[in-house]
Amino acid sequence: MTAVALESGYWSALGEGVGAILLYAVIGLVLMLIGFYAIDLTTPGNLRGMVVEGKPNAIIVTAAGIISMALIVVLAIYSSGGKLSEGLIAALVYGLVGIIAQIISVRVLERALGIDIGVALRAETYTVEILVVAAAHFALGLVVAFAIL
C-alpha cells in the first residue's frame, strides 16, 4: 500500500483559497445587487417587478447588467496578482465606479438614440432597441473591466 504525502502547509493553503473564493463571491454578489438596484432606480417603473412578471426586455437588460458587473469583478480579481486584501478592495472600488459609469453612460446613450427605456422595459414582447441598451451595458462593462488592467 502506498501512502500519499501532502506537502507541508497544503491544508492551510487550501483553506485560504476557499476563503478567498467565498469572499470574492460575496463581493461579486453584493456588487451585482447594487448594480441591479442602481439600474432599477434610474429606470422608469419597477425593474424588479418587470423581471418577476417576465417582461422580456427587462430580463435582457438585467442580464446584460449582471454580466457586465461580473466582467468588472473578474478583472479586478485578476489584476490583484493573488493579493487577497488588495483584490477585495480593488473589486469593491472598481465595481462601484463601474456601476456609476455604466448607469450614466447607458442613460446618455438611450437619450442620444431616442430610446424610451420605460416603454421598452414594460413591453410585453421583445423589442429590437433593447439590444442596443443591452449591448451598451455589456460594452461599458468591458471598457471598465479592461481599464482596471
Results as ranks from 00 to 15, higher is better:
49 G>F: 00
25 A>L: 15
47 L>Q: 00
46 N>P: 01
20 A>F: 12
64 A>G: 05
66 I>H: 04
48 R>A: 07
43 T>E: 00
43 T>A: 00
71 L>E: 09
33 L>I: 06
55 K>L: 09
40 D>F: 02
45 G>V: 04
73 V>E: 08
34 I>Y: 02
66 I>T: 08
40 D>W: 01
32 M>Q: 11
25 A>N: 11
47 L>T: 01
46 N>E: 12
50 M>T: 01
42 T>Q: 09
56 P>S: 14
24 Y>S: 08
19 G>R: 14
33 L>P: 00
19 G>Q: 14
65 G>V: 01
37 Y>R: 06
19 G>I: 13
16 E>P: 00
40 D>T: 03
58 A>Y: 01
66 I>W: 07
18 V>Q: 14
44 P>Y: 08
23 L>R: 13
39 I>S: 03
27 I>E: 07
22 L>E: 13
25 A>P: 05
48 R>L: 09
13 A>S: 13
23 L>M: 15
41 L>Y: 02
65 G>T: 03
36 F>P: 02
66 I>L: 14
43 T>W: 00
51 V>W: 04
61 V>A: 13
59 I>W: 05
30 V>G: 07
69 M>W: 00
46 N>G: 04
45 G>T: 04
17 G>T: 12
57 N>A: 10
54 G>Y: 04
65 G>S: 13
73 V>Q: 08
49 G>M: 06
21 I>Q: 12
65 G>Q: 07
69 M>V: 09
30 V>A: 15
25 A>E: 12
40 D>E: 09
58 A>M: 08
50 M>C: 02
21 I>V: 15
45 G>Q: 08
62 T>P: 00
56 P>A: 14
16 E>N: 13
22 L>V: 14
68 S>K: 07
62 T>A: 09
19 G>W: 14
18 V>L: 15
21 I>C: 10
55 K>N: 10
15 G>Q: 15
45 G>S: 12
25 A>M: 13
29 L>T: 12
56 P>K: 11
71 L>K: 06
64 A>T: 02
15 G>T: 15
61 V>W: 04
54 G>W: 11
15 G>C: 14
34 I>G: 02
29 L>M: 13
28 G>L: 07
54 G>I: 09
55 K>P: 03
63 A>P: 01
24 Y>Q: 10
25 A>F: 14
68 S>C: 11
32 M>Y: 07
53 E>Q: 14
63 A>M: 11
39 I>Q: 02
55 K>W: 08
24 Y>L: 10
62 T>G: 03
69 M>G: 04
72 I>H: 05
54 G>D: 11
55 K>Y: 05
55 K>C: 08
35 G>D: 07
51 V>A: 10
71 L>D: 04
25 A>S: 15
48 R>Q: 06
52 V>P: 00
39 I>K: 01
50 M>H: 03
31 L>W: 09
48 R>E: 06
52 V>N: 05
27 I>F: 13
38 A>C: 06
33 L>C: 07
41 L>V: 00
47 L>W: 01
52 V>L: 12
62 T>Q: 02
20 A>P: 08
34 I>W: 02
27 I>V: 15
18 V>G: 12
31 L>E: 10
60 I>G: 02
69 M>P: 01
45 G>K: 05
67 I>Y: 12
55 K>R: 15
42 T>A: 09
35 G>H: 06
49 G>C: 06
38 A>P: 01
61 V>Y: 06
23 L>F: 14
46 N>A: 10
38 A>L: 09
45 G>C: 11
67 I>W: 12
60 I>Y: 09
